[in-house]
Each structure stands twice: as structure tokens, then as C-alpha cells.
Amino acid sequence: MKYKPSTFWRKAFGEYKAWLYLAPALIILFVFQMYPIIKSFLMGFYTEFDYLHDIVYGWGFDHFADLAQDADFHLAIRNTCYLTIVAAPLSILISLLFAVLLNSNIRLRGVFQSIYFLPFVTSMVAVSIVWAWMLNKDYGLINSILKTFGISKVAWLTNPKMTLPVLVVLSIWKGLGYRVIIFLAGLQGIDQRYYSAARLDGAGAASRFFHVTVPMLRPTIFFLSVTTVIDVFKTFDEVYVMYSNEPGPLKSGLTIVYYIFTKFYRHWEFASAAAAAFVLFLIILSITLLQFAAVRLARWYEERRQAHEEME
């Protein structure tokens, strides 16, 4: 009984010490990450306000209603969705191909891997500038290479139809190394005995790929599909730099983040930019949840099939 107060104080002191350790991180995270999430949500509803003094005169759904009416916002969503639907699966498939090839007892594997990873450590601004120079219609390297194959000039940067394909290629180029490395880690985690067993059962290379590699890689594929989709959704730097501070010819490269940036930085319409940012958040959240659900469903289906097979 005598020791009770002292253990109480020791405990209280221990807790207070834990908060001291946490304080530096928590202050930063609360001010610059948690508060802004709430603030950004609230700001979307401000109809009249003075941002410098943080006085709000009016609230309402006006900005969300405006977004629903705004043709530019629709275009931004369409473009971003196009990018996501085309670029994300393509990047993942190509990276998977390269990872599988690299994993097949290849010489110079380290060299290839280091090369593929280069764009990851490179400034996107510098990269976009070189690509824009290479894609120049009259003096660009790409068109001159195509010319040797007898293909006539393509207006990569000025034809609105080419904007999204160019951005897709750029996103594959940029992310290949990162995805290859993640896939390689996944591939190396697969127990070789599965392959031996499959071989004994007479499974060919293709069958081994689809019945061993792909199912075993499911967590990796899931991780990459979530991060790739999020990455593609945030496309901004390359568009802004490649098209000289314009969202591409005829706004053909207008993405959601670009739209938010324009509202915020060009027009200083903080509230409608916040509303658009919040819509972006909701879209990303729902896609991620859908991906989770898809994985769950696939697992459930698989389990049921297995149970079914065992019964027979």
C-alpha cells in the first residue's frame, strides 16, 4: 500500500515523458496534415470569407454545385480517368513483364535494374523539359527517329489528341524502375518449391506463370495497383512544365490536380479549389476501397472454388 502514490507518480511522469518524445512530430503533423484535412473539407463550404483573417461570412454548397456545372472540371475528371484506366494497368503489366524477365537468371541483372530506376531519382521538371525537347515537332529527336522508319512528323505536343498518350508513356517511363523493384521483391518471396511441383505436374512456362506466379504475387499487384492509381491521379508537374504552364493544347492535358492548381494559384479561388480537392480525395478513397473490395471478392471466390474442389 505504501508504494501506491509513488507508482502513480512514476506512471504519470512516464506518460508525460512519452508526450515529450511525441511533441515535435505531433505539432508538425497536426498543423500541416491533420488540421488541413479538416480545414480543406470545411473550406469547400465557405461561400464568402477573408482568408487572411480567417473570417467566414457565408456557408453553402455553392462550390460543389459550381463544380457539377463546370465543363472544365468534367474535362479534368475525364482526362484523369482516361490516364488512370490506360496508364495504371499498362505500367503494371509492363513492369511485371520486365520483373519476370529480370528474375530469370539473367546476366547484368543489377545493371538493368539500376538503369530502370534512374528516372525515379530524377527531377520531374528536368525530365519533362528533355521530353518536351525530344518531342518537338520540327527539331525533336523522336520525329527524326520515326522518319528513318518512314513515319511522317507527329505533332506530339500541339495536337490535342496526342497529349494523353504522351502522358501515359511518360508515366510508364517514370515509374518502371520503382514497380520492377517491388515486383522483384515479390517474385523472390515465392518459394521455389511451388515451381518444382508445378514442373513435376507437367505445367509449361505459361501455365506456371498464371497458376503460380500471378496468384502468389496478388498482394504485390494489389499494393502496386493502389499506389499507381494514386500516383496517376496526382499528375501535374509534367503537364505544367511540358506544355509551358498550360494544361496542354485545348486543355487536353487538364487533370484534376491541374484544375485545383489553376483555381487556387491562378484565380485565387481558395474555396472552390478546396471543394475540388475534396472531390479528388473522395474519388481516390472510393477507388482504393473498390480495390480492397475486389481483392476480398477474389479471395472469397478462390476459397469457395477450393472448397468446392475438395468436396469433389
Partner: peptide, 27 residues
């Protein structure tokens, strides 16, 4: 609880933070 709360914020795209952070820093 605190840890979960922090981990949940990882879901939020960084772009959403830009506008309020600009306002905070301006203030």
C-alpha cells in the same frame, strides 16, 4: 488510437493539404 489516427491520414492525397497550408503559412 493516436497511432491509428495518424495512419489514417496517410490515405489523404498531399494535394488536399496545399491550400490550407498556404493559408496557415500566410497567416
Amino acid at each position: 488510437l493516436l497511432f491509428m489516427l495518424l495512419v489514417a491520414t496517410m490515405m489523404v492525397p498531399g494535394e488536399i493539404l496545399v491550400i490550407p497550408n498556404f493559408v496557415t503559412l500566410a497567416k
